[in-house]
Design a protein around this nucleic acid. Structure first.
Length: 224
DNA sequence: AAACTTCACAACCGCATCCAC
DNA sequence: AGTGGATGCGGTTGTGAAGTT
């Protein structure tokens, strides 16, 4: 009787990543089940494939989904259901696993809220667009600097439509915050207890959470 | 400071599909 | 047409980090 070789499970080490990447760079992908043995890895072919496809493969974009990408995911999920690979095919350099995770942890809840909102508004506006980007004209840092930026004032008194020459990221919120604000604005007003000032603080406190992901830069120049 | 909870994401598992024989 | 191996897909789980009490 032949004993099955021990197959490691769990998180990948940097050494394993390096071995798999080096092997594929040199010999390419020919047979996932055989490759681990030749690459000196005690992993199943399935595990290697997953690691490569979702993490090691060059040009993968990870994290920092833009609002456009979020909109696309929500729209396609409505259209196609949970066909993550089909959705990933429409989002360049995104993996199905990443999209699935992002949906399950963040977008699902929002989609429910939007779905409710849209179904409610559908009674008054049958032709309402399901694209969430049209629901609220709040600029986000994902689209900074925007084309033809028009001023947006949290005081609500200065939405002039004129081009603002002095815009900075201070005028923008992250896509995450955009959704927080959107969800907040979709809640009914609560009479006397409605606290305008504290919610204005929410808006202001998030106005500088723009950040940069060095991982994107790394994959822009893979293996340099 | 410690305990507890929530969140985000990497990875696993089982099933479906494809394809060569 | 049937079979078995390889691959792909989507649901789910495990775990570390971050946040809260």
């Amino acid at each position: 009787m032949v004993r099955k070789p021990y197959l490691k499970k769990g998180a990948w080490t940097a050494d394993e990543d390096q071995k798999l990447t080096a092997y594929i760079m040199r010999y390419g992908i020919w047979n996932w089940n055989q490759m681990p043995r030749f690459a000196g890895l005690q992993r199943s072919g399935k595990s290697c494939r997953l690691r490569w496809m979702n993490y090691l493969r060059p040009n993968i974009r990870r994290g920092n989904f833009t609002r456009e990408e979020e909109d696309t995911i929500i729209h396609l999920q409505k259209q196609l259901g949970n066909r993550w690979s089909a959705i990933a095919a429409r989002l360049p350099n995104r993996t199905d696993n990443d999209i699935k995770n992002y949906w399950n942890t963040r977008l699902k809840k929002r989609s429910v809220i939007l779905g409710n909102n849209n179904s409610a508004s559908a009674t008054t506006s049958p032709s309402s667009n399901t694209d969430s980007s049209t629901l609220l004209n709040i600029p986000t840092t994902d689209e900074f600097p925007p084309a033809g930026y028009t001023t947006f004032s949290t005081s609500g008194s200065n939405n002039t439509g004129e081009v603002n020459e002095n815009y900075t990221t201070d005028n923008f919120v992250s896509s995450e915050t955009y959704w927080e604000i959107l969800c907040f604005l979709e809640q009914p007003l609560m009479g006397e207890s409605f606290d305008c000032e504290s919610n204005l603080q929410l808006w202001r406190s998030h106005s500088q959470d723009y950040y940069y992901d060095p991982v994107d830069d790394f994959w822009a120049n893979p293996l340099v």
